[in-house]
Design a protein around this nucleic acid. Structure first.
Lengths: 140, 140
DNA sequence: TGGTTTCATAAAGGTGCCTCCTTGTTTGCA
DNA sequence: TGCAAACAAGGAGGCACCTTTATGAAACCA
């Protein structure tokens, strides 16, 4: 199999494709939430701020299909659906909760870095990027 | 500040936005590579399979701006540019290398889960999804 | 009767990321 | 002279992801 999109993982699926699945922001947020406790659809929707019903449905479907989440339908009226991490999902939760914690605790630091960078190089504007010139390559 | 897109991190930047930056597949691959050793542009391009020159340039620029990577230009002819992780970048490398390792070691397991799911529910095709009906909600 | 709950889905339109191809400049080498 | 190396950037077009709005069905309640 030709390594078009990345290192060949054990299944020949490009590593970049796997990473784009598990590194996805909604995946991180959903998995991190479910690692705390199983939840129903609307609970998740309220807890994962900013996610739409549609995106939540699609994300949960994908997570179920990948084997990270199991879905239980209860015969209530109307039916209620519970989502819970599988053991596989709990394994994924480990690096993801670490990543989410990093995001929570380091956003200000990123902001400061961006401000410093912009002060030095100018804001990333359409006309602010000079043309590449070897002798004038962006010198620090 | 209104929490439109996620939990409010300490900088008021939505957590989902921070996660979409640091969880990005190219970020993962680049940071993981640089955590092994500093690299020049073309070294990185060869090592991060599947990335285009353009995407690599943009990704490195963003990583530099966020404070994770530092860029050193050497006055060779033509100029060569070296990228290395900052201490902040090394902190991010920890959860990211764990995530990348997970991706490398669990792709086959995801494939197996998908195959099992599709066997049970049918392949995700445009016409394979039945209309929502509470009494017939996807029962497992 | 109308409204609500629950969760999956459809359609239309917008945006961002990415691919592919190209340009640019200086130096060194065949 | 032509080509290669090095690395940043531009443009056109395609595709995936997302937002917004709406639909659907059974039961319950005012």
């Amino acid at each position: 199999m030709k390594p078009r999109h990345g290192h060949i993982s054990e299944s020949c699926r490009p590593i970049s494709e796997v990473l784009s699945r598990i590194g996805d922001k909604w995946t991180s947020l959903i998995i991190t939430r479910l690692s705390q406790q199983p939840m129903r659809f609307n609970e998740l929707k309220r807890n994962v701020h900013g996610i739409s019903q549609k995106v939540l449905t699609a994300s949960l479907r994908a997570l179920e299909r990948d084997g990270f989440v199991e879905r239980t339908v209860f015969p209530t009226t109307p039916p209620t659906v519970e989502y819970r991490l599988t053991p596989f999902g709990e394994e994924l939760a480990e690096p993801l909760t670490a990543l989410t914690r990093f995001a929570l605790t380091n956003a200000a630091r990123m902001d400061a870095a961006r401000a410093a960078y912009d002060t030095k190089h100018g804001e990333p504007m359409p006309d602010a990027a000079p043309k590449y010139k070897p002798q004038q390559l962006r010198l620090n």
